[in-house]
Design a protein around this nucleic acid. Structure first.
Lengths: 104, 104
DNA sequence: TTGACATGCAACCAAATGGTTGCATATTAG
DNA sequence: CTAATATGCAACCATTTGGTTGCATGTCAA
């Protein structure tokens, strides 16, 4: 679990997760596009995410596909939020999102 | 949000949250009991947790009471887990816990 | 086969992090 | 009032972290 928290502690890594959440199964090169840091920096970040189990990979020829894995992320909330409280908070944030949509 | 992830990245701070999840409204001294690090180290950790909004405090005379705040923790899961997937994962971990209880 | 493309590995560096010690301040009990 | 208790602030230090550059390896297409 420690690795999961450490992995999520960095903004660059969270951004990579955002990208994978938006479009799964991307290659390293694809994930590098538009970023201001070097490819090697991205490689390191993806390695840390993979080591934590938050990202899973599959080789395909000379390419490496990356996938997000939501299971360990879910376990974070489970640790400090009780079952009923969790449902309450989920409903609350659903409502919040709905209201934010209506604002536009 | 960055502060929340940074706050949760450290094992000592997660342990402090565990303590507050188990028993809320504890003083600094109370939270220090049994720990191997100095009081000042704990103060720093609690300051970081408070700065992230994961812990909320209230002065009472010369004591400072600490409370856990689950809201920002819930928002972590919301970021990368869709609404339906969230329900599925919650059900899954409920089942897992149930099975683990029956094991004993 | 050979060159171009996609990824991997390692050494190195500046900045952030977690911890310490020493001293200061504020509140309560006797 | 005074001493003990509870917390606050600041300087300092070792380690970790996020980034770089340079070179190596592996795979596909012409």
């Amino acid at each position: 679990m420690d690795a999961v928290f450490k992995a999520l502690a960095d903004e660059s890594r969270r951004h990579l997760l955002d990208r994978l959440h938006h479009k799964n199964a991307q290659t390293l090169g694809e994930l590098c596009e538009g970023l201001s840091m070097s490819r090697q920096a991205v490689t390191k970040h993806l390695g840390i995410l993979e080591g934590a189990g938050v990202v899973v990979t599959k080789r395909q020829g000379r390419e490496k596909l990356h996938f997000i894995n939501p299971v360990p992320i879910n376990e974070i909330a489970e640790r400090w939020i009780g079952k009923f409280e969790r449902a309450r908070l989920a409903a609350l944030s659903d409502l919040k999102r709905k209201l934010e949509r209506e604002d536009k």
